[in-house]
Design a protein around this nucleic acid. Sequence first.
DNA 1: CGGTGATGTGATCGCCGATCACATCAACCC
DNA 2: GGGTTGATGTGATCGGCGATCACATCACCG
Lengths: 202, 202
Amino acid sequence: MNSRPGGRPYHHGSLPETLVTHAVALLDEAGAEAVAVREVARRAGVAPSAPFRHFPDRAALLAAVTEAVAVDFSERQLAAVTSAGALPFKALGTAFVDYALAHPHRFALVRGAVFGGARTPALEAGHRDFTGRVTELIVAAQERGELRRDDPELIRVAAQALVYGLSQMFVDGYLDASRAEALIDRVLDLFGLGVLGEACRE
Amino acid sequence: MNSRPGGRPYHHGSLPETLVTHAVALLDEAGAEAVAVREVARRAGVAPSAPFRHFPDRAALLAAVTEAVAVDFSERQLAAVTSAGALPFKALGTAFVDYALAHPHRFALVRGAVFGGARTPALEAGHRDFTGRVTELIVAAQERGELRRDDPELIRVAAQALVYGLSQMFVDGYLDASRAEALIDRVLDLFGLGVLGEACRE
DNA sequence: CGGTGATGTGATCGCCGATCACATCAACCC
DNA sequence: GGGTTGATGTGATCGGCGATCACATCACCG
């Protein structure tokens, strides 16, 4: 019946991945609310009940989508940091806002999942890894005298809240997204005075 | 049929208000997602189709809920400001976070609606009024030399993003809500150094 | 007192999430 | 190689939801 010249291992091939792929596309198109199991199955060309063989319910499918998106998200941010040698924090914040603007629905999903209470083990691990690296950056900057020698976790949380709040305001259309970069610069300058270390004060 | 000793004007009384009341209760209990038109009608004791006489669709009902909640939200913040003579900004931020923690689902709803693009005229007016008052506070503080003489709108946006991001992190359980006040103090102190005016610098 | 329009009802449609018995096919064992 | 077994996909089905429609009911107005 099915033309399956390739050596697909099972009936369909690897249905779970296919489902997640289509679900991400659907998420990008119309938001998490629009990710219906039946529609995903339809796009994947399988029966409406097929996805339930791999995901116990819709929430589990969304969780898989979230994991995939979160991995992509954190990878991009870390890439931005490593590629921009100096000013890693501005690069990090800009990458965060840029990703949120490019994929607003993905941002909404990871927001609720990463910051939310019900974290998957994989999400939890990825999150700990990411925050750990950011804290390392902060400590390093403190040792170079570029940042105030305050509790690094406090600085991290505050910076995270700021970037996060700005991102949401951009995504929601509350701020002009086309001027994102300039506004980020100004806000960071404004608040940066409170966080800079001795070496950077005039 | 119905025992209506009170002089209720219509068949039911004023059904729209009743519906919104039950919808808000449902929102508080289980989030916006759980606000089903049928369930609201059930609680109000009317037929499933009755709400559609007053709200064209579910989105309109949710919009009415949002308006009611947004009014309550901004009233509480303004009350906090006027009751706390000095340090109005800390009072404002604390009131914001407190409300978000007390009613997380309401916060999620107004977030998407107030910051979001599709604002009801009533919401838009209330929002303009509110941000106007905050900006006045900022300008007044600048004239007293308590705040940096920077663009007041910039300061407002930055402060809003910070408080907003912190609120979301508390609501999502990412930060320990029981230590909200202390953490707000520390973050404001940390960033405040960048925003304070000449009169407050040591 | 009769009409008229606003309000509430019940039936109905299509979509969704979820479950079940059943079909199909790969893999494994003898 | 043939049979068994378990994983995977199907179709039917259930209940819930949003939305619409014809119909019933009731307040209000002339």
